[in-house]
């Protein structure tokens, strides 16, 4: 990926994005003012636990937030066009064509009364000037790429004839069909088996490399991000607490939360040893502590962490929000 060449014109530029959830006792920020960019052909891993706001971020970018959630601030520049100001019609056309979404639940994108072939061919014919036969051939190719054998027979089947994992692979294949500018994928492989997951990660990387598609891969799994992403953004309590190139963030983590997640992996200790756990649990959206939201679970917390919300520190391409970051160190 040619970072220097595209540095001044990111495909997606998100600034100060803030999305609140309206609950009976008030509006609470699910996404609390986040900034990041995605270049063409770049895979950004958006990592966080449930309730961190990572999925809401994905939906907020394409303005797919319904009540009780509402985007209340920020800019989402896609090819220099602010999606927050775009008309519903314009957004629909972008979502079908230049921006593809892959959801946790594939049934959100598949039409139950159309065969897989009809849906996939439809998606191609809408945006490309090709014949029906050619569209079906392209659809079959896409199915093979996500590890579905006998694609011609599969194209004649309907979504209900597929297992959950197969449906998800069809949804992923459909998203990849038109080589869109941006794919936003929300935990798409969480329910899939590891052998299939690794195949899909491989294909997504290839798509990004070959057709310059940018990908935002939303997941709770740092290991997936390590394999797939060029850059990673770690979310906690609605903020991005650390962002940067994968090697930087994973090998030279500055935020204690990122490091805690990495160190809690079973691979970090000898078999049979206790794992390094992060104590406590993420605060609920309506009970976040003052200052830094991670401080109640953090073993590096100082008194200032309770008083002041840490502002982002930028160190080259590596950014983090912490009053007492891990010291800078060389790669292990």
């Amino acid at each position: 990926m040619n970072a220097e060449f595209t540095q001044d014109a990111p495909l997606l530029d998100v600034q100060g994005l803030k999305t609140v959830i309206h609950l009976p006792d008030g509006a609470w920020p699910a996404v609390d003012g986040i900034d990041f960019t995605v270049q063409r052909g770049e895979v950004l891993g958006l990592v966080g636990e449930s309730g961190s706001g990572k999925s809401v971020t994905g939906f907020s970018i394409v303005q797919l937030m319904d009540s009780p959630a509402e985007v209340i601030a920020g800019r989402v520049l896609f090819n220099n066009e602010d999606l927050r100001l775009a008309s519903e019609e314009r957004l629909r056309s972008l979502r079908g064509n230049r921006i593809a979404m892959i959801f946790q639940d594939p049934l959100m994108t598949l039409n139950p009364v159309l065969s897989i072939g009809e849906q996939m061919a439809e998606a191609i014919l809408e945006h490309r000037d090709v014949g029906r036969q050619e569209a079906l051939r392209a659809a079959a190719d896409a199915l093979v790429r996500v590890g579905i054998s006998l694609p011609e027979a599969r194209l004649r089947q309907y979504p209900h004839e597929f297992s959950g994992g197969m449906r998800q692979r069809v949804a992923i294949a459909t998203a990849m069909l038109n080589a869109p500018d941006l794919i936003i994928a929300d935990e798409p492989t969480t329910a899939l088996d590891v052998t299939i997951q690794s195949q899909i990660l491989f294909e997504v990387q290839k798509l990004a490399r070959d057709s310059g598609t940018a990908v935002i891969w939303i997941t709770h799994d740092l290991a997936v991000v390590a394999e797939l992403a060029d850059r990673v953004a770690v979310m906690y309590s609605g903020r991005i607490v650390e962002i940067g190139p994968v090697d930087e963030v994973l090998d030279r983590s500055r935020h204690p939360y990122t490091l805690g997640l990495l160190r809690s992996s079973a691979a970090m200790v000898e078999p049979g040893q206790r794992l390094n756990q992060i104590n406590g649990m993420a605060p609920r959206i309506d009970a976040r502590p003052s200052g830094c939201p991670f401080r109640t679970r953090c073993d590096r917390a100082m008194s200032i962490c309770a008083e002041q919300d840490p502002t982002p520190t930028i160190d080259g391409r590596h950014g983090f929000r912490c009053h007492n970051p891990m010291p800078q160190r060389d790669a292990a």
Binding site: I21, L23, W28, A30, S50, G51, S52, G53, K54, S55, V56, G58, F59, P68, A69, F103, Q104, D186, E187, R284, I285, D286
Partner: peptide, 10 residues
């Protein structure tokens, strides 16, 4: 989304 569900459970 999973996130919204989490928040709604709150």
């Amino acid at each position: 989304t999973a996130d919204i569900e989490t928040f709604a459970k709150t």
